[in-house]
Amino acid sequence: MLLASLFGVVMGLVLGLTGAGGGILAVPALVLGLGWSMTQAAPVALFAVGSAAAVGAIDGLRHGLVRYRAALLIAALGAVFSPVGIYFAHQLPEKVLMVLFSLLMVMVAWRMLRRERVDEGPSDHGHANWGQKNCMLDQQTGRFSWTAKCTATLAALGAVTGVVSGLLGVGGGFLIVPAFKQLTDVQMRGIIATSLMVISLISAIGVVGAFHAGVRIDSVGATFIATSIVGMIIGRKLCARVPARALQVGFASVCLIVALYMLVRA
């Protein structure tokens, strides 16, 4: 129970600080730390990630940072494709799922460690027009200009996020955050808040699907979920004080170590 509490707080803390990565740590914590199988860990990890993300998303909505229309579109496509991932998760052997998850962690760590060119970007309310992005903010309204290209881009992101979420029990923030940075001109605070809303919605859909399939959460899982919410609240309080680069390097290092250990176990 103590280990579950510790892992839950750490997962929520990472999610609150980065808007991504919580699920990446949640599944290994349950599999390696508590000895659960991947199929056991995935729905509990999704529940924990979704609950913690919902707390952060509400905070983002209060401050006007969430691009809620984009979040709803991504989540809607995630809802359609999440059952596909859940289906394959129950068809693939445990070792294959562990290898896939390890490779995913390596990819996330590589993206975190890679230094990106810093450009002067717009505010979170779109007072600038810079670069050629798939989804641009309108300078007058501060909202996305919903072109066909923008709609298709966000829909595709939702579909991919849904499949990966169902397959590996992750919220998808590790996909949403870099995709938003690459494809939109929203600033980082808005990206994190929007990512948290998407994660909460897609995770909720995945959890409902898991419950429908007969999955139940025991007291250890409930403790993990509750403490993840505490970690999220702490993370949201600290996010403005922690140097972004130090956080990225530290998180990436943990990902690489855990990925290596999971590969050895597999």
Rank of each mutant, 00 (worst) to 15 (best):
F224N: 12
G166M: 13
V84C: 07
G22N: 05
I58G: 10
T161I: 05
A210S: 15
E120L: 14
A155I: 03
G173K: 08
M105D: 04
D138A: 10
L61M: 15
L3N: 12
A75W: 05
P122R: 14
D59P: 00
V230H: 03
V164T: 11
T194S: 13
G56S: 09
L256K: 12
T161F: 00
I257H: 05
R241E: 10
V160W: 09
G33V: 09
L3C: 07
R143N: 13
K95D: 11
A29G: 07
V99C: 04
L13D: 04
W110Q: 11
A152H: 01
I233Q: 12
A42P: 01
F88R: 12
F180A: 03
G214N: 13
A252T: 10
L25P: 00
A155N: 04
S203R: 08
K149D: 07
L73R: 07
R114N: 08
V186W: 05
T227Q: 06
L104T: 09
A89C: 12
H212M: 14
H63C: 02
R62K: 14
A252G: 15
G221M: 14
S228Q: 10
V80M: 07
A155Y: 01
S37Q: 15
R143H: 13
A252C: 07
V264Q: 12
G8H: 08
Y261V: 11
G19F: 02
V177M: 05
L61F: 10
T184W: 00
V31T: 15
F144W: 08
L72W: 02
V170W: 02
T147I: 03
N134H: 00
Q187Y: 06
Q140F: 02
T153S: 09
S82K: 06
S37R: 12
V170H: 02
V108G: 00
L34E: 15
V96C: 10
T153Y: 00
N129M: 05
P178T: 04
A79F: 08
A148F: 00
G206R: 06
A204V: 06
F47R: 09
A159W: 03
L238Y: 00
I229E: 02
A226Y: 06
L263V: 05
D185K: 07
V44L: 12
A79K: 01
A53D: 10
L157Q: 07
F88I: 15
A75E: 10
A155D: 08
